[in-house]
């Protein structure tokens, strides 16, 4: 248990660093507030380890801490809806065992964007739906990228870095 908690703590810290790194690289020319989703890679690795509870715990802690440290209450709402939505879908798809890590990540990226957009509609207005196609494609691409990286890292972890 103690080992688990320390690992989760480390992973949460890693997620926060990812969040900071992402804030340095602005992709906002594509759509406002768009991000790579590096922290999702951590959730993916936990899912790959069949530890979906850990994935939820780390993700929720990460969202609460990062908005507390750097964000606004509005962002908390967006992050929570995106984070919980995407993780639920990824955990469900993971259990079907029909998808690879990359597939999970693509679904996660797309669902994340869909949930954030859904949260933005009542807050900002229907006009945000204009970003729907862009967000679908971007979610897929960034999800695929992160999934690809997570696959490599997962293999390294499983073989203890050999090969």
């Amino acid at each position: 248990m103690a080992k688990k908690i320390s690992v989760y703590g480390l992973l949460t810290a890693l997620c926060l660093v990812f969040g900071y790194l992402e804030s340095l690289v602005s992709l906002s020319l594509i759509a406002p507030g768009i991000k790579l989703g590096l922290a999702n890679g951590v959730a993916l690795l936990l899912l790959a380890k069949k530890d979906w509870q850990g994935a939820f715990a780390v993700n929720l802690t990460r969202i609460l801490l990062s908005t507390l440290l750097f964000g606004t209450p509005m962002q908390l709402l967006f992050s929570l809806s995106g984070g919980i939505g995407s993780l639920t879908v990824m955990a469900f798809l993971c259990r079907t065992e029909k998808f690879s890590l990359t597939g999970l990540s693509i679904a996660g990226g797309v669902v994340h964007n869909l949930f954030q957009l859904a949260a933005a509609v009542p807050l900002i207005g229907r006009g945000v739906l204009y970003y729907l196609p862009v967000l679908l494609v971007c979610g897929g691409i960034s999800g695929g990228l992160i999934g690809f990286l997570a696959t490599i890292i997962f293999k390294k972890i499983e073989t203890n870095g050999k090969k």
Binding site: S100, G103, G139, G140
Partner: peptide, 17 residues
């Protein structure tokens, strides 16, 4: 990558299109 992955990608891009 599995077969279901490619279906997923196809669905996402079709929806976006």
């Amino acid at each position: 990558m599995k077969k279901a992955d490619f279906w997923l990608i196809a669905v996402v891009f079709a929806a976006a299109l």
